[in-house]
Simulated assay, not measured.
Amino acid sequence: MIGRSRRDAGQAFPIYVVMVAGLLFLVFAFFAVGKAAALRNGSQGAADAAVLAAANEARKNYETGFLASLPEDLLDQYLESHPVIGCPAAQGLASANQADVTFCQETLGGYRDRITVDVEGRKTVNSSVLPGSEKTTAKATATAEIEFRCKWRSVDLNHDSIRDIFFFTCKGGGFLEIRPSSPPPWSEVSKILYDVHLVSN
């Protein structure tokens, strides 16, 4: 009986080893999957931050062209054809979130301009149970829209074809009065004229 018990124990030991090894593999695999998901979330956050920074930069850069179009009442023309320049601001926010911009596109849309940014995280999954994961990084894409959300009317006080006052009525209840000769700070009015938000890709 004693000999048989020892034989049974000896036969069971390799099974225990295999079971423990299997459990350890599963633990490491679940850890790797969790790390990959966390890195993916981090990259998406970096992409969102980067594209919003680019969109806000573009909105800031509208100032010169927008204000220059007002006296001659060329605002419609400006909105339909104007430069959208924001991508240079994207990398700073991506870098702050441990990622790099791999692609950035600015698209003129008139009343709805768009910027799309692709980023790649700097950290790798680097799991011993996933071959090639030492080179696997998380990638993400985000798109932001810069929406001009106001209607306007202009007044020519001197009857000389030069518009002296513009009145803007905007979505959300915003109202602005802009005199081209002495406009208010763009940092304030641009946030009423233009809404910046993320959109689904």
Rank of each mutant, 00 (worst) to 15 (best):
C170W: 03
T124F: 05
S128P: 04
V17T: 08
D118F: 01
C170N: 05
S5C: 03
I85C: 10
K123R: 09
E177I: 13
P83V: 12
R40M: 06
R112F: 04
T137V: 09
S128R: 00
K151E: 15
S69L: 11
I165N: 01
G65A: 11
A9T: 05
N158H: 03
A99W: 05
G22S: 13
G92H: 06
K151F: 13
D76F: 11
A50G: 10
L26F: 15
G173A: 04
I165V: 13
N61K: 02
V27Y: 14
V20T: 10
F168G: 03
L24K: 01
F175E: 14
D113L: 04
Y62I: 11
A99F: 04
V18F: 07
Y62P: 03
T107Q: 12
W186S: 03
R114L: 04
G10L: 09
V84H: 14
A89G: 08
G174S: 06
G42K: 01
L67M: 10
A68G: 09
Y78E: 04
S187T: 07
K135W: 12
L193C: 02
I115N: 06
V155F: 10
A38H: 11
A89N: 07
R7L: 14
A96F: 05
N41V: 01
A47G: 05
V84S: 14
G173E: 07
L39D: 15
A94K: 07
G121C: 01
T107R: 09
